[in-house]
């Protein structure tokens, strides 16, 4: 199965929800009227595109109708796709490794899918023959260290850890030292899930990041921060992205759990409001279900008919 098919399969639910309804809005009516825009508003909001972004999109479309003197709904549908593309366009998905130690710090709220995402990223690079190491930086949640350890065992990857309750910054420090000493290509550091509104925990996260940055500078390593967002999340994802970005500067987003019925429209909102690139999407349980985000394919898969 090639990438496109897999993506399409993973997004099948998304498609059924969005595509059919979007095309039925534009086709099967004689003119462009308020009802059309209201129906579009309904579909977009139900796809979690978010109130702000939805209304911006619809305003743009209304302007297009005015400026370009559009009369046919089908023509307007092309404009709709164009406007959507505009919001997502420059994205470059995927993660590339430099020819030195690459450190990826994975952050997110509780239950977003950080640990599973880490395992999938690690598996992907291990398969490419890279030397990968994991750091169990979630020293808070019961069983979190074991969870990562089990993944490490399955993948044949070393996991640096201390006991539960220990200082996450110390784990990060140890891990960078170990990764450097053992000449790793990639070190992925897990962190405890935290609600972005917990000030003290966000301060702790900043501290971990400072340690990593300092160690990276000393050891000529690169650092990338990935924020894991659950596609089931509503507009709170925007707030999460904002606050995590302010705290540790997020370099990219991993959107997980797109294989449910959640529409994933939050991607559009996050990109539109914060301009943080989406790097990877999770469309299933299997390792290969973590895929590079590709806006062209994404929109195509989202809107093309079966």
């Amino acid at each position: 199965m090639n990438f496109f098919q897999r993506l399409k399969n993973g997004l099948k639910k998304t498609q059924k929800g969005l595509v059919d309804r979007v095309s039925s809005i534009f086709s099967g009516r004689s003119g462009i009227d308020d009802d059309l825009f209201e129906e579009l508003e309904e579909v977009l909001i139900q796809a979690d595109v978010g109130v702000k972004t939805t209304f911006a999109l619809i305003e743009n479309l209304k302007e297009d109708v005015e400026n370009e003197d559009i009369k046919e709904p089908e023509v307007l549908m092309d404009y709709f796709h164009k406007e959507l593309k505009k919001l997502l366009q420059d994205e470059e998905g995927g993660i590339g490794l430099d020819d030195k130690l690459n450190i990826i710090m994975v952050v997110g709220v509780n239950g977003a899918g950080k640990t599973t995402t880490i395992a999938k990223i690690a598996g992907r690079f291990k398969e490419q023959g890279k030397r990968v190491m994991l750091a169990a930086g979630d020293t808070f949640r019961a069983g979190a260290i074991e969870q990562l350890q089990i993944w490490g065992d399955r993948l044949g990857i070393n996991v640096i850890s201390q006991q539960e309750g220990s200082d996450a910054a110390a784990v990060a420090y140890d891990a960078v030292q170990a990764a450097k000493a053992r000449e790793m290509d990639l070190l992925i550091i897990d962190t405890a899930g935290r609600l972005h509104t917990q000030k003290n925990l966000m301060e702790e996260l900043k501290k971990v990041k400072r340690i990593i940055d300092a160690q990276a500078a000393e050891n000529n390593a690169s650092v990338e921060v990935l924020l894991v967002l659950d596609a089931t999340t509503g507009q709170n994802a925007i707030s999460q992205a904002k606050i995590f970005n302010d705290a540790v500067k997020v370099d990219g987003i991993v959107l997980t759990k797109l294989d449910g019925t959640a529409k994933g429209g939050i991607v559009v909102a996050v990109k539109n409001e914060l301009n943080i690139p989406i790097k990877l999407i999770g469309v299933g349980e299997a390792a290969e279900d973590l895929q590079d985000f590709n806006p062209e394919e994404f929109i195509k898969a989202l809107f093309s008919a079966e």
Partner: peptide, 12 residues
């Protein structure tokens, strides 16, 4: 159910 769930909450 996660309080942060979006529109999909009804489906779930």
């Amino acid at each position: 159910v996660d309080a942060m769930t979006g529109q999909d909450a009804v489906n779930v």
